[in-house]
Amino acid sequence: MTTTTPTRPAARTIYPTKKVTNPVLTAVIRHALIICFLVIMLYPVIWMVAASFKPENEIFNGLGLFASRFTLENYASGWSAGSLNFSRYFMNSFLVTVLSIAGNLVACSITAYAFARLEFPFKKFLFALLLGTMLLPSQVTMVPQYILFNQLEWINTYLPLVVPHWFGVDAFFIFLMVQFIRTLPRELDESARIDGCGHFRIFSRIILPLAMPAIGTTAMFTFINTWNDFLGPLLYLNRTELWTVPLGLSAFLDATSESAFGPLFAMSVLSLAPIVGFFIVSQRLLLEGVATTGLK
């Protein structure tokens, strides 16, 4: 939004040579375009929200947002579908997610501190090994993991979904934090050392508070990954009272019989709410993290 002056050189020819002078008009046009794009990109989500309020047999009658009548019965029948209801699935999902986030934050930050600040034998090799695990597709480790957890008799518990996070298996987040901690000035560590701090205090008083953006990013992505994880719960949780939200959602679908699309969309809308909420709360931290850690 600059006020144009006639003395400005009109050198660029690919753009219209005569500048629109009215700043209000340019602002209106620009915002109209942005809003159009926003609507196009959000339309599938908007459609899903609208579909959750449609009577069940009218859901797939087109791309429109309105049906013959507005109804809340999808929410009522979806919430109490099956022998259990969705409050149970939400509780389970929250439990798994919170434990996973806690595990990831503790394990990844400690490991990252070690790789970024400590000197120990085979450090380079171990770091390369860690990064190497990122190249392993999860399908490769799926069966061995299943056998292992089965031998430990962890099937039908949350342990296979939670415990790995406490051992820093998410190499990506460790890498993210290592890169972030490396950018922090070492002088801060040294001054803390002069004041008599050991590694634990340097870590907890200096590094952790400064690494908040990276920690926020890790928490956010762990939240999304765990909340949306389907295959893990599918493999390890058999009893319906242990099911997480994605498993509950999937039970609305039945390719060999009748799918309950109305309740499916209604519960999908509800299952998005925590993610959106978490994002709004941690947005500032997250954006800062993305900007300062050079992610993407």
């Binding site: 099956g82 058999n238 039970a251 609305f252 060999t256």
Partner: peptide, 13 residues
């Protein structure tokens, strides 16, 4: 014993 089958909410019930 363990029993496994495919299906959605109504068949599970």
């Amino acid at each position: 014993i363990a029993a496994a089958w495919w299906g959605g909410t109504s068949r599970i019930e």
